[in-house]
Simulated assay, not measured.
Amino acid sequence: MTTDFEPRIYVACLAAYNNGYLHGAWIDATQGVSELQDQVNSMLAASPIAGAEEYAIHDYEDFGGAFISEYAGLPDVSEIASFLAEHGTLAAVTLKDSFGDLSAARSMLERYAGCYISVAAFAEECAEQWYEIPDQLAYYIDYEAMARSLQLGGEIEVVTEGFEEVHIFWGQ
């Protein structure tokens, strides 16, 4: 899955902020940690307050619903941003479902089964792959019930993103 995410952070100089100035910079968060730190250092060096050393993340965008704290570490920001840039919308889905826990999102991504119009459509596809179903019996199979059983039994996890956009993950 390709990316349509370009995560950025707005880093503000706290010395300037505390003295009534708004001074900061938008930075591409997908860069490595040293590149992020270099850009933060450049922003601080250009501060209207001499000797500025402290910064905070005052805004962020395109993080797919992940929460970025004001004092989040640059390694964490870079890692989340790179994950989103690499895996796109699916990464955002897993991050939201994992409440921003990156390791849980990575684990969830490894168990991805696909995107379907419904859980019943997924159950139907599985049944067709796993079993030889005679044509005369196909109309009698209740795929909705099969889907409920898969969910209730913990075999799958379901994340609904929108109309006919159901992401299925194999259970743990």
Score class of each variant (00 low, 15 high):
residue 1 M to N: 12
residue 1 M to R: 13
residue 2 T to I: 14
residue 3 T to G: 15
residue 4 D to N: 14
residue 5 F to M: 13
residue 6 E to M: 14
residue 9 I to E: 07
residue 10 Y to R: 13
residue 11 V to P: 04
residue 12 A to W: 03
residue 13 C to E: 08
residue 13 C to N: 09
residue 14 L to C: 08
residue 15 A to D: 10
residue 15 A to E: 15
residue 15 A to M: 04
residue 21 Y to V: 11
residue 23 H to Q: 04
residue 26 W to T: 01
residue 27 I to W: 09
residue 28 D to P: 05
residue 28 D to A: 11
residue 29 A to D: 02
residue 29 A to H: 04
residue 29 A to Y: 02
residue 30 T to S: 09
residue 30 T to H: 00
residue 31 Q to D: 02
residue 32 G to M: 02
residue 33 V to H: 06
residue 34 S to K: 12
residue 35 E to N: 12
residue 35 E to Y: 02
residue 36 L to E: 06
residue 37 Q to P: 01
residue 37 Q to R: 15
residue 39 Q to M: 11
residue 40 V to I: 14
residue 40 V to F: 10
residue 42 S to W: 10
residue 46 A to D: 15
residue 48 P to D: 08
residue 48 P to T: 11
residue 49 I to L: 09
residue 49 I to Y: 01
residue 52 A to W: 00
residue 53 E to C: 05
residue 54 E to C: 00
residue 56 A to H: 05
residue 57 I to M: 03
residue 59 D to G: 07
residue 59 D to I: 01
residue 61 E to T: 10
residue 61 E to S: 07
residue 63 F to T: 12
residue 63 F to Y: 10
residue 65 G to Q: 10
residue 65 G to M: 12
residue 67 F to Q: 15
residue 70 E to D: 12
residue 72 A to C: 08
residue 72 A to T: 08
residue 73 G to T: 14
residue 75 P to I: 03
residue 78 S to Q: 04
residue 80 I to S: 00
residue 81 A to P: 08
residue 81 A to V: 05
residue 81 A to W: 03
residue 84 L to I: 08
residue 85 A to V: 08
residue 85 A to C: 09
residue 86 E to K: 15
residue 87 H to Y: 14
residue 88 G to W: 04
residue 92 A to M: 11
residue 93 V to H: 09
residue 94 T to H: 10
residue 94 T to W: 08
residue 94 T to D: 07
residue 94 T to S: 15
residue 98 S to H: 03
residue 99 F to M: 12
residue 100 G to Y: 05
residue 100 G to N: 06
residue 101 D to N: 15
residue 101 D to E: 15
residue 102 L to P: 08
residue 103 S to T: 15
residue 103 S to R: 14
residue 103 S to V: 14
residue 103 S to F: 11
residue 103 S to Y: 12
residue 104 A to C: 05
residue 105 A to L: 05
residue 105 A to G: 01
residue 106 R to C: 01
residue 107 S to G: 13
residue 107 S to H: 09
residue 110 E to I: 05
residue 111 R to Y: 00
residue 112 Y to E: 02
residue 112 Y to I: 02
residue 113 A to V: 04
residue 115 C to G: 03
residue 118 S to M: 03
residue 118 S to W: 01
residue 118 S to F: 02
residue 119 V to W: 00
residue 120 A to V: 07
residue 121 A to E: 12
residue 123 A to N: 03
residue 124 E to V: 01
residue 128 E to I: 01
residue 130 W to R: 07
residue 133 I to G: 04
residue 133 I to Y: 04
residue 139 Y to C: 11
residue 140 Y to I: 02
residue 142 D to H: 06
residue 144 E to V: 12
residue 144 E to K: 11
residue 146 M to V: 03
residue 147 A to D: 01
residue 147 A to W: 02
residue 148 R to Q: 14
residue 149 S to E: 15
residue 151 Q to M: 14
residue 153 G to W: 09
residue 154 G to T: 08
residue 155 E to L: 06
residue 156 I to E: 05
residue 157 E to Y: 07
residue 158 V to F: 06
residue 159 V to S: 13
residue 163 F to P: 02
residue 163 F to L: 09
residue 164 E to D: 10
residue 164 E to I: 02
residue 164 E to Y: 07
residue 166 V to K: 01
residue 166 V to G: 01
residue 166 V to F: 01
residue 167 H to D: 11
residue 167 H to W: 08
residue 167 H to T: 03
residue 169 F to M: 07
residue 169 F to H: 06
residue 170 W to S: 03
residue 171 G to D: 06
